[in-house]
């Protein structure tokens, strides 16, 4: 169940997308996500689709990993589609009892689902091709101007990378404790909701204790190595833009221009109108 979340699960491969500076990928993801909200013509969505396919192909990550993240939002997807399908006013296409499916509703339902799917897939590309450490590094560097406003950027980035670092550890730990309790006859699947919650106690108590123990150990280890926050701290591998990164930014700019042109030109829409 927890394992299905692709977000934050790095897929190692040797691709130009993997090699990009995390700041480029961060910017790219944000631009892509915002563009999905700013443009809503069919034409611009075709451009977005092509761009997404291009990036996914380039990343060498198998397509099924991209769709894994969708499992987490499957219910959200179904609900949005259903609500849009039945509640948006317009010309009635089908009527089942009091529920009406309208043309605008159908259009909206498809459109919203596509948008949601693209949002998840777009951000999955980033998390699948960037290690959590690179990601926080990129975030820290990108946000470093905020240091002047006394925002503890380094500390926030450090906390984020620690949190991300601990997700797989705690997942493994959960698995271990679960198995250990199952070996003692624990049953995590059957019973009603209260019974199920009660059955979780033998899992949660050791998990919390272990999380606190690990946090304590880590704090000790960091202090023993003289960690004192971001002040005067240098990086072993400082982030620097290379040629590939400039190409990345240019591609991104080209994407935006294309989106804009497609939105204005509405070629497909016009074509469709003419046919009809």
């Amino acid at each position: 169940m927890l394992r299905d979340m692709t977000l934050g699960q790095y897929y190692p491969a040797d691709s130009p997308i993997h090699k990009l500076d995390p700041r480029v990928k961060l910017a790219g993801t944000i631009v892509f996500l915002i563009s999905l909200f700013c443009f809503d013509s069919v034409d611009s969505y075709i451009v977005a689709t092509l761009f997404l396919i291009f990036v996914i192909r380039l990343s060498k990550v198998p397509f099924k990993f991209m769709t894994k993240g969708l499992r987490a939002i499957i219910f959200l997807l179904i609900f949005t589609s259903l609500f849009n399908l039945f509640l948006v006013p317009g010309n009635t296409l089908v009527q089942i009892w009091k529920l009406k499916i309208t043309d605008a509703g159908l259009q909206m339902a498809i459109f919203m689902s596509v948008r949601l799917v693209y949002l998840i897939m777009g951000s999955s590309v980033m998390t699948l091709t960037t290690t959590p450490n690179d990601l926080t590094d990129g975030l820290e560097k990108a946000l470093s101007p905020l240091k002047k406003l006394k925002v503890p950027v380094h500390e926030i980035a450090m906390m984020m990378s620690i949190a991300l670092r601990f997700i797989p550890i705690l997942m493994e730990e959960t698995d271990k404790i679960m198995k250990a309790q199952m070996a003692r006859g624990a049953d995590f699947d059957s019973g009603n909701i209260i019974q199920k919650a009660k059955n979780m106690i033998p899992l949660l108590v050791p998990l919390f204790i272990s999380a606190f123990r690990r946090a304590n150990d880590l704090a000790m280890a960091m202090e023993a190595r003289g960690y004192h926050g971001g002040e005067g701290r240098t990086k072993m591998k400082p982030l620097e833009y290379k040629r590939l990164d400039y190409i990345g930014y240019l591609t991104l700019a080209a994407y935006l221009v294309l989106m804009f042109i497609a939105d204005r030109a509405v070629l497909v829409t016009r074509l469709a109108d003419r046919i009809i």
Binding site: A183, G185, S210
Partner: peptide, 20 residues
């Protein structure tokens, strides 16, 4: 399976972490 697990007892590594 439950009966199997009661017949085949498995003590994991660092079993003290399962105390609750």
């Amino acid at each position: 399976m439950k009966k199997l697990r009661s017949n085949v007892g498995l003590v994991f590594q660092y079993p003290e972490y399962q105390l609750f």
